[in-house]
Amino acid sequence: DWREIAKLAEEALKKQQPVTVNGQTFNDPNEIKKLLETAQKAI
């Protein structure tokens, strides 16, 4: 669910920690931002 992904990505950016989505881990803040943008577009 994109809403859940957006929430996870936002928290990861705030806490500056990696986030795992669908078994894929994102460590890079730039990648997390991209993930968040993608999720927000999909909602």
Results as ranks from 00 to 15, higher is better:
23 G>V: 01
40 Q>A: 06
25 T>W: 10
33 K>F: 10
32 I>N: 00
14 K>T: 09
30 N>M: 11
16 Q>H: 13
37 E>K: 04
23 G>E: 03
37 E>H: 08
22 N>P: 01
21 V>K: 01
41 K>G: 08
27 N>C: 07
41 K>R: 08
39 A>V: 06
26 F>L: 11
8 L>S: 06
21 V>P: 02
35 L>A: 02
17 Q>I: 14
5 I>N: 00
30 N>R: 14
42 A>C: 12
13 L>V: 05
40 Q>R: 11
28 D>W: 15
27 N>P: 03
24 Q>T: 11
28 D>K: 09
26 F>C: 04
13 L>R: 01
18 P>H: 10
18 P>R: 03
11 E>L: 06
27 N>T: 05
3 R>K: 15
35 L>Q: 02
2 W>C: 04
8 L>I: 12
34 K>V: 12
40 Q>D: 05
42 A>D: 04
15 K>M: 13
10 E>D: 08
43 I>K: 01
31 E>K: 06
1 D>T: 14
13 L>A: 02
3 R>P: 13
43 I>E: 07
43 I>N: 06
19 V>S: 02
21 V>F: 10
10 E>S: 10
29 P>Y: 13
2 W>E: 02
37 E>Y: 06
23 G>A: 03
27 N>L: 12
19 V>R: 00
29 P>L: 13
34 K>W: 09
23 G>R: 03
35 L>T: 00
31 E>R: 04
31 E>H: 07
38 T>S: 12
11 E>Q: 10
22 N>G: 08
27 N>A: 04
16 Q>S: 10
38 T>W: 13
11 E>P: 00
13 L>I: 11
11 E>N: 08
11 E>Y: 06
2 W>D: 03
1 D>R: 11
12 A>V: 02
29 P>H: 10
6 A>Q: 08
42 A>V: 12
12 A>N: 01
12 A>C: 03
34 K>H: 10
15 K>Q: 07
24 Q>R: 09
25 T>V: 13
37 E>T: 07
13 L>G: 02
11 E>F: 04
35 L>G: 01
12 A>K: 00
36 L>W: 13
41 K>S: 11
33 K>R: 15
13 L>S: 02
18 P>S: 09
41 K>M: 15
7 K>Y: 12
19 V>M: 15
19 V>G: 00
37 E>P: 00
14 K>V: 13
11 E>A: 07
10 E>I: 12
23 G>I: 01
8 L>C: 04
42 A>P: 03
6 A>N: 03
29 P>F: 13
35 L>C: 03
33 K>D: 04
42 A>R: 05
